[in-house]
Nucleic acid binder design. Structure first.
Lengths: 352, 352
DNA sequence: TTGTATGCGTTATCAC
DNA sequence: GTGATAACGCATACAA
């Protein structure tokens, strides 16, 4: 009953204290708690009572130490915030939860000492998923070689390090062709390929698709130095300033696209009549935008889940090979296709 | 040179291995690594060489065990995603970094077993910051009593648990009065007070301010069951459907407000002419919206930083008392005040 | 069914 | 300057 306060500086009880109070050995205490071997009912009761009396709970620090395992897996992102990361995390957590493993999250925020941060982080988990542009291939390889099992996410596999990624290529090509079919002549890609291997692949494939039909594409002179709507808006403003002739803006993700649409409006251009805008990811916002955003669906939740599954295979010593998940172009209104607005029934307007 | 692979199942080397190879005792190895006592230069070199040869790095697990400290602090959010959390985390990390502590992040996602999750989490850190509506006061108190030092964030202090919060009250009152001055009669608050103590306070104060001048306010019949733009949009659509007479919508945060503005447009209403919209947080997006969003600035980065500072005080055994940070109403265009659009200079329109 | 003894990889306290 | 050795709190092989 006299559970001592843990913050009052009172030393926390150990197995020895519980064993002594219960009049048994520490082995028995451990057995009761872990349920690792049969224990007489009355003994078990005595142990439980003693543990409760002292407010004892086994030290995770000690447990992890003796088990030589953290009981946790980690996932590293360049940033947090935004629907993409949230959903990938959700998928990752779902799988980790099934495996009784805790999830640790690290965001490198493009800090210069990212390698160091990830290295520190690696010492706190049993295995690691590294996404996009956080640390370079050499660092990842080193990590996998002398720290812990590693899986890459949204990024190409490295020697000895399997990867989980979405098939960006086909959709990028398809999306580019679709934009061309709408008659776009001057097409701009908005997003910084150097910020993410995934984005780079999209950029490469889109550019190739356009060159194939004799079109040219410019990466925007004003790059979006980030993946959020604020960057997209600023970049869009610069892009549309001075009456530059731009037919279509293909964005690195949906948030950037959202910003570009607002920038277009602010600059007096209509979407899609004056300028086509496309996104990437198919985030929840995409369907709600005005016009609804044409984009590419990525299975974000599954990307996280599969990365976790792969990581646990590695931890189990099972063979693990890279996986590629399908993507799909989602045609909505921002590309110029006819669209059904979300079912709005305002009194001042007729249905639809 | 023959650094063994860590993933190949080869057992990682220990101090003993290094000591043996260097021909010294483990005490000396430890001394060299920690630089805790003078060691002869040639001995040090030998140790370093041996450590390098074996690719040895001291086990964090063992270190944490003997030090009885994780070297990490944690912060618990109801969710991730969105600018609010990102910036709070940034502030928290900045301070933790100064103190050489790692940062662990947990999102409870409104899961039913949140208490359990946070409890598990608490065992992995030396101290904890708990924000908003993650676990109830009783759980927090229990956590602080028998696990580790705890600080509350964006939430009232509990007995024995200090808190860091923003002064929502004054700004809520001021904002409400401002909306009234614009002639709004039918005002709706959009956001679920039950989702966050912070939001509840805003709702209470806004309602009080309106009653004080004989106005009434209704919490929206369709609550925004979340803090993102998607929820705001849906709630807005419902709100504006059927020609409901609504003068002003005061939102729980900027993302919801963004969704409401889009919903208003989709429903054929002009902002702010037909309906006033206000937000909360002053996220980066607020200034970019059309019209620019009238909102309340919260020092998000500092909230995180101060929470961390308070936590470290607690860990140091220093006295720590709650802190309240100021907020400020930011008047922009969405309330009906004249506004300067961001400097856009499209060719098709004159300046401004 | 229970107890004894040992190991896990460090750090720290002695004595030399 | 250096080496032996004792913790730290738990799990577990082996005895009884």
């Amino acid at each position: 009953m006299a559970k001592r306060s843990r913050t009052a500086g009172a030393k926390r009880p150990s197995v020895y204290d519980v064993a002594r109070l219960a009049g048994v050995s520490i082995a028995t205490v451990s057995r009761v708690l872990r349920d690792s071997a049969p224990v007489a009912t009355h003994t078990r009761r005595a142990v439980l009572a003693a543990a409760d009396e002292l407010g004892w709970r086994p030290s995770r620090l000690a447990r992890a130490f003796v088990a030589q395992s953290h009981g946790a897996v980690g996932i590293v992102f360049p940033d947090l915030g935004g629907p993409y990361y949230s959903r990938v995390i959700a998928g990752f957590e779902a799988t980790a939860c099934e495996r009784q493993a805790a999830v640790l999250i690290l965001a490198t925020h493009g800090r210069a000492n990212a390698e160091e941060l990830v290295g520190e982080f690696a010492d706190r988990v049993d295995g690691l998923v590294v996404t996009g542009s956080t640390i370079d291939d050499a660092s990842v390889a080193a990590l996998a070689r002398l720290r812990c099992p590693v899986v890459m996410l949204a990024r190409a596999a490295v020697a000895g390090v399997p990867a989980v990624r979405a098939a960006n290529g086909p959709s990028a090509t398809r999306l580019a062709r679709h934009v061309i079919e709408h008659g776009a002549e001057r097409i701009v890609f908005l997003g910084d390929p150097e910020l993410s291997p995934d984005v780079d692949e999209r950029w490469q494939r889109i550019a190739r698709a356009l060159r194939a039909v004799g079109r040219d594409i410019t990466r925007s002179p004003v790059r979006a130095h980030g993946f959020d709507a604020v960057h997209g808006y600023k970049a869009g403003l610069d892009l549309f300033a001075g009456g530059a002739a731009v037919d279509a803006v293909m964005c690195a993700n949906d948030e950037i696209a959202g910003g570009v649409v607002r920038a277009a409006v602010a600059s007096g251009r209509r979407v899609p009549d004056d300028v086509i805008v496309t996104g990437w990811d198919d985030s929840p916002l995409a369907a709600q935008m005005h016009p609804p955003l044409t984009t590419v669906h990525q299975p974000m939740h599954e990307l996280g889940a599969r990365a976790a599954a792969l990581l646990f295979d590695l931890l189990d010593g099972a063979p693990a090979s890279s996986v590629v998940l399908p993507t799909a172009v989602v045609i909505r209104g921002s590309c110029g296709c006819p669209t059904h607005l979300p079912s709005v029934t305002p009194s001042t307007k007729g249905k639809q």
